[in-house]
């Protein structure tokens, strides 16, 4: 392929005590594309995602070895500025976790962390990112209300806006639609398709149809290992590995 490789992961291993969660992960994710990491529950998809923005640091019992290069820098190196690194990636988790503040401040929080200081500037950007997440029309009259009063679909879009507000180059999404109704899910998927021109998107899911709908590049994982990776058409229409065939055929157990 001729695409630029935004994220290159080589020989990544993650251990929790004696148990190995990720085994020798070697993948390359293309820039400005949607990469879907596919696999059954418990195969290490979420851990892989958390390695990429070093949220694994939160869990002292995890031991991470190997290399993750983002635009060439090894982010697992000790001297890497993890706060800068995390601002480079927006995270969208399985369920929305709005911060315990107003709708407005949920976005402003990230802006302030990014160093935007002027009030007028902050206001302008809050509006901008809420519009980006298709939420502005619904919340423009209630910006000072607690974010927890929004519906769960609105909350997830708020989390997306919050993630975009730190101006990331990469969006990490961990089954972002699994708690949402079909219409809210569609919103998010649609948004991802629009965003991929500017962002590199890594999406974790176990929903095959979702992967087929929006993926450009697919990584199939099983029990901590990468079984197969490639363009969405290659993997879906012409899987090389037996396990991938079984999973795609729905007869996996």
């Amino acid at each position: 392929m001729t695409d630029n490789k935004k994220i290159q992961i080589s020989d990544l291993n993650v251990f929790a005590g004696k148990f190995q969660i990720l085994k020798n992960i070697n993948i390359e994710l293309p820039e400005n594309k949607i990469t879907v990491i596919l696999g059954p529950s418990g195969c290490g998809k979420t851990t892989l995602l958390k390695c990429m923005n070093r949220l694994t640091d939160l869990y002292p019992e995890l031991r991470v070895t190997g290399d993750i290069r983002i635009s060439g820098n090894n982010i697992l190196a000790a001297k890497e500025d993890i706060y800068k690194l995390r601002q480079h990636m927006g995270l969208l988790s399985q369920r929305p976790y709005p911060l315990p503040m107003t709708i407005y401040n949920n976005i402003a929080y990230g802006l302030k962390l990014r160093g935007v200081k002027k009030r007028r500037e902050i206001h302008k950007l809050v509006v901008h990112y809420l519009q980006q997440a298709n939420l502005w029309e619904e919340v423009k009259h209630r910006l000072r209300e607690p974010a927890s009063r929004l519906s769960i679909g609105q909350q997830q879009r708020l989390c997306l806006a919050r993630g975009l507000a730190v101006n990331p180059g990469i969006i990490l999404a961990d089954e972002p639609t699994s708690a949402l109704d079909p219409i809210s899910s569609q919103y998010i998927e649609q948004k991802f398709l629009e965003l991929k021109n500017e962002y590199t998107i890594v999406l974790v899911t176990h929903v095959l149809r979702q992967a087929r709908r929006i993926a450009d590049y697919v990584v199939f994982m099983y029990l901590g290992e990468v079984i197969e990776q490639g363009d969405v058409h290659e993997v879906f229409e012409n899987p090389k590995m037996e396990k991938t065939k079984l999973y795609l055929g729905g007869t996996f157990n």
Binding site: Q87, L91, S93, Y97, G110, V166
Partner: peptide, 10 residues
Amino acid sequence: ELKEASLALG
């Protein structure tokens, strides 16, 4: 996850 959300914003 709430803490992770905040950390993920930098």
